[in-house]
């Protein structure tokens, strides 16, 4: 999966996720705040490779 496709998928998942919440620290956002993506969600937790969703909505997406 290309990097852009992975990113697009996180947008799709976040847009359809009941738990999606924009990180409350602007400095921790990955993109501008208008982009709805798991990368900007406060429930994502960065790992050595990629990140995990602390609400278990996302299991196999990372960088």
């Amino acid at each position: 999966m290309t990097e852009q496709r992975k990113f697009d998928r996180t947008c799709y998942i976040a847009e359809n996720c009941a738990y999606y919440t924009l990180d409350n620290d602007e400095d921790e956002l990955y993109t501008d705040e208008s982009t709805i993506t798991c990368y900007n969600c406060r429930y994502r937790r960065w790992l050595q490779k990629g990140f995990e969703c602390m609400k278990n909505q996302l299991k196999d997406i990372g960088e």
Binding site: D27, E28, R42, R44, R45, W46, L47, Q48
Partner: peptide, 17 residues
């Protein structure tokens, strides 16, 4: 300033460490 530290399974952290 924000300083990124090691992300590792043995280190507890919230989202960025």
């Amino acid at each position: 300033t924000r300083h990124q530290l090691l992300i590792h399974p043995d280190i507890p952290y919230t989202s960025h460490n």
